[in-house]
Design a protein around this nucleic acid. Structure first.
Lengths: 251, 251
DNA sequence: TGTACATCAGTGAACGCGCGTTCACTGATGTAC
DNA sequence: TGTACATCAGTGAACGCGCGTTCACTGATGTAC
């Protein structure tokens, strides 16, 4: 009477339960890690018989895949929001180096905040792989490349501005050759190709990103001890400066 | 008659079985990962009753701890050997910047070679933590800090040479303050303290190391795809150059 | 509007599995006199 | 050198557990006429 349901009761229930399953599974993931994720435990938490879950999920591995995609998308949303905030009210459409740097800072900061808030989800997508599980690439890649696509445009922003296009002249010529050879497949990827980056800049961009990921892992997984560093936020910011130094360096 | 056994039959058998248990467990680790490590499976492989293992190992977690310590020590041995090769035949005892750089390269290269050869052991010590397991620090730390101790001396070598002692003057003064505050506990650690590093150099050293660890993880865990990069050895070498740039940069 | 049938959601019991850990035990190795 | 006893290594059965997955089923929701 009040509102016309576009879908019947069943469809709505189904959508709601799908959400609830993912939510509960995410909670379990956060509590005990991916390896301990159990269909029976999730069903128990939902007040369902274990067999009922098979109406929504093909198998335990399938549930893991759903969680991975969800994690990628949550991170992607967080990064999108951070970038939108940076771009807000900017009228110069031309990508300057300063803009690119600000966007890079926004990305790393959003990554860090999200990782800090969801360490197990972070471990799921950027940590060591879950044993006995292989993610089906065709399902995870679309969500998994969202952040990387942003990074590529940032890198291009850094490349195309002040220093001109021939950034690859800087540094020893051997480096360019090494980068071209070592990253051949990656340079051939359509997404990367469309960014049109000089190989050494891609190498440096990867370095900057791996520096950030390594740092986040070091903090989150407490590889130097439980209280190192004392001020993680400041430490990540300082590390972002170092990462930017890497992609700026060849000038 | 031929040789005098310093220990009786029992002691020798015990030592041998201890070794064998660790060897089999390591094999299982390499095949199915830490979370799937099972005392029963190890016992089966050794032709023993499951209960027999409890003469050698207090619990499953205890076995994991042994594996972690062993992994740290194997890596430590590999790094020691690589450093010994670099130092071989060097008569100038003074630590020059060039020597320090060569030693850093030796460390990262040894790390990469070892990680490539033993990915699961690498994941055990530098990957995301094993769920439901907390390593007892007093048992893992001695082995775990071996490599880090080498890194500290390398950093000091870079600091004390050409540029003089007051490296911290370089860069914005704010950076030094941030580093001092963010890394206070670490700077207070006796091992770090004895190296006498300026805070910003420690920050940069951590960055260099995290860049390397992030890169190794990226390759090993195939975070960019199964065939990225095409030439991992060259890629790691190129990344080591970037890492060195970070610790050299403030000059 | 009402009826007959198809579809779907969820149940509950069962299968077979492997796990960590305990415990009373047998037989071999060491030790003290 | 030989004997009596203590120590240790390894056995085998058992405990209780949780897991993923299948299957025949009941009852509710949808659909076609």
């Amino acid at each position: 009477m009040t509102d016309t349901p576009a879908q019947g009761i069943r469809a709505r229930n189904r959508a709601a339960l799908e959400e609830e399953i993912l939510a509960v599974a995410t909670r379990h993931l956060a509590r005990s890690g991916a390896a301990a994720l159990s269909l029976r435990a999730v069903a128990r938490d939902l007040g369902l018989a274990p067999s009922a879950l098979y109406r929504y999920v093909a198998s335990r591995d399938d549930l893991l895949t759903l969680l991975i995609v969800r994690a990628y998308n949550e991170l992607g949303d967080a990064v999108d929001a951070a970038l939108a905030a940076v771009d807000d009210g900017v009228d110069t459409p031309a990508a300057t180096a300063a803009r690119a740097e600000a966007r890079f800072r926004a990305i790393t900061s959003a990554l860090w905040q999200w990782a800090r808030a969801h360490p197990h989800q972070y471990a799921l997508i950027y940590g060591s792989p879950v044993p006995e599980y292989h993610a089906p690439a065709e399902r995870t890649t679309p969500a998994g490349t969202r952040v990387q696509a942003h990074l590529l445009t940032v890198l291009r922003g850094l490349a195309c501005s002040d220093a001109g296009a021939q950034t690859d002249e800087a540094g020893p010529a051997a480096t360019a050759a090494v980068a071209t050879r070592a990253l051949a497949s990656l340079l051939d990827d359509p997404l990367v190709r469309s960014a049109g980056l000089p190989p050494t800049l891609l190498l440096r961009g990867l370095g900057a990103w791996n520096l950030v990921l390594g740092t986040v892992g070091c903090i989150l997984f407490e590889q130097l001890g439980p209280d190192v560093p004392d001020d993680p936020d400041a430490y990540v910011t300082a590390t972002t400066d170092l990462a930017l130094e890497l992609v700026r360096a060849p000038r």
